[in-house]
Design a protein around this nucleic acid. Structure first.
Lengths: 108, 108
DNA sequence: TTGCTCCGTAAGTCATAGCTAACTGTAAGC
DNA sequence: GCTTACAGTTAGCTATGACTTACGGAGCAA
């Protein structure tokens, strides 16, 4: 389970909307679909992609099925980004000190 | 400039390879392309996408053109992920305490 | 100025992925 | 046991995007 799969899973706007719908707590497919302009099968497919990326976990509740955000899955993405961030920030600080012009105004 | 564009930019494996090639410092288009199994225009297009997402900045160096990671652009993505992380972790802890079974074994 | 090198853009092709519609499977209720 | 309701799966269509080839522009050297 790599961070690439998680990034790809969160890249799609609709899928990200599905993911963010779980931010308030566990939801079923139908509940999520009712709040989005896409069909229920589409939501189900997005949830499958999120599940494959280990970003959500599901749990049967009678005939329905509850999906919730899987925090440990988010951790890997966070770790990758943090490593990148530390590296980039260090170089950015060096760059900002050596260059005279302010970096935030740099070639916009 | 939303985090959605940044996520979409980093979702593609090749584009992520281009981005990670900049981790060691500023590089030109040709340098990056020589280390990847894609053509130079492809790298150029990926760099444009990364630039549009405010993840990199470019700078002319004679006939060449140096690209570098733009740390402030990464910050927005980090902030979004952190907010999500805090929320998800809180719910995950609550879930782990209420449920008897360990969450990491939950319906794999 | 001419030639070389490096880069960006346009056009075209091809693969991937997201969507809907239709079908199947399963649990709850009478 | 049958019906109903909810979720997952599959097929097919469409659209998006990633890639290459070809072309044009800009800077440096002779």
């Amino acid at each position: 389970m790599t961070y690439g799969a998680k990034l790809a899973a969160l890249a799609d706007p609709t899928r990200r909307a599905v993911f963010e719908a779980l931010r308030g707590g566990p939801r079923s497919v139908g509940e999520i679909a009712s709040g989005l302009p896409v069909s229920r099968p589409a939501v189900s497919q997005h949830l499958k992609a999120l599940k494959d990326a280990d970003l959500v976990r599901d749990e049967p509740r009678g005939t329905a099925r509850l999906y919730r955000i899987h925090a440990p899955g988010l951790l890997e993405l966070r770790t990758w980004l943090d490593g990148f961030w530390d590296d980039a920030l260090e170089r950015f600080k060096t760059f900002a000190e050596t260059e005279s012009e302010p970096p935030s105004e740099d070639r916009q």
